[in-house]
Design a binder for these strands. Structure first.
Lengths: 221, 221
DNA sequence: ACTCGGAATTGAACACGTTCGAAAAAGGAG
DNA sequence: CTCCTTTTTCGAACGTGTTCAATTCCGAGT
């Protein structure tokens, strides 16, 4: 894709929308590159002209879900709620959005985990996407009353995002109908996380929390 | 593999050792099933007679590493050390054993993450392998002085194993030479975890810790 | 209007993981 | 030994993701 713009943008979009539809309708494995290309009335070679790999197409789904998560969650957050409730909303909205794709949740992680590519939630190359995901938690933290202690306020969103990653992992393995167990986990974990934040005010605890924050910061290179 | 024993056991072992060698020498992707079969002087079909998939072969590597981790770590643990030091040893030994395979660390996770198969560290089907991994931490906990609070002693090994999984994830992304950053992380995190355990004695903290333990237990179904 | 150069498209081809039907080897019972 | 079943081996073949040389398309410069 050398030139910045062109009417081939339409082809690209068509491929994305086709791919996402097939992913939703037939799952990850049944949706072959040939099938996507055929459904979009282009050759397989053309599909590869726009997307470097099948994973790259899944990456589009990933971004799409992230945006949907954001646009669904933000309006549900009300200023002044306590952190636990806000977290509950953000997390539940998250698994709600992912729900239709539960059957290939593991493929998500497979792709997300690769240290290469822009998809990985951890790799340095996806710092932008990660920051955007974390900003959702930052918003929740900012809206919460009472406000979390200043000492951790800046790092809390990232920590909460890590927790979200853990819950996502649980979700992948959750074979209960409608992933009801994940919902229960969230309902319990959200207020718990909130309590932990409050706890960090305690003088004894604060020392260690500061150590932990330092540790996390250290991992950022 | 219907019959329990046979001299075909030798063929199986040959395939395993060949595969592990090629994995070590050429990495994950360069080591094709055809290459493994050829190096073991059998047909690709035969390789599939013994192993359902390439992942299955990686699973053998996984188990091999786990045993090596165990047999290297256990003799290094001394009764009476504090938990932080014991943890440091277990964790460092772990990443040490994995070291030679760092280049396909992500493949490990890819395979481990699949909700199917016996490989997954979380899936219910690999309860045995997971229990064995956790037992290494149980040993460390049992040897530590002072002993962790009774309230969490039983669940602590599993929690520590989760921490180990997190560190492994960090290790996968650690591109520093010899994964030195992961070593630093371990050296900091181990005493920190130990301090957290001590903290759980505090009356205020204990309540929440009990909630967390309940939560973890709940996730076990 | 013509040419030219890059953008876009194509379908065949490759390598890989995996499957499969059939054949060879290995036992075991008579 | 012979027959029959079971285990083991084989290699061709399939479907997939991906690559690539070749071709067509299209717009800008003259």
């Amino acid at each position: 894709m050398p030139s910045p713009t062109a009417k081939s943008e339409a082809t690209r979009e068509l491929l994305v929308s086709t791919a996402l539809r097939l992913f939703r309708e037939h799952g990850y494995e049944k949706t072959t590159m040939r099938a996507i290309a055929a459904a979009a009335d282009v050759s397989t070679g053309s599909a590869y002209y726009y997307f470097a790999s099948k994973d790259d197409l899944v990456h589009e789904l990933y971004r799409s879900l992230q945006e949907e998560h954001r646009s669904l969650a933000l309006p549900r957050l009300r200023e002044g709620q306590n952190l636990g409730e806000l977290l509950r909303i953000v997390l539940n909205t998250g698994v709600g959005v992912m729900g239709p794709y539960h059957d290939f949740g593991s493929n998500f992680i497979n792709i997300a985990i690769k240290p290469s590519a822009t998809t990985s939630p951890f790799g340095s190359e996806s710092a932008v996407a990660r920051a955007r995901a974390i900003s959702l938690f930052r918003q929740a933290v900012a809206m919460s009353r009472p406000q979390p202690p200043l000492a951790i306020r800046d790092d809390l969103p990232e920590l909460l995002w890590y927790a979200y990653m853990g819950i996502t992992l649980f979700w992948v393995y959750d074979s209960s109908p409608d992933q009801i167990r994940t919902r229960r986990l969230i309902d319990q974990a959200a207020p718990l996380l909130s309590k932990l934040v409050i706890l960090s005010r305690l003088p004894v605890v604060r020392k260690i929390v500061e150590d932990i924050v330092q540790l996390i910061r250290g991992t950022r290179q």
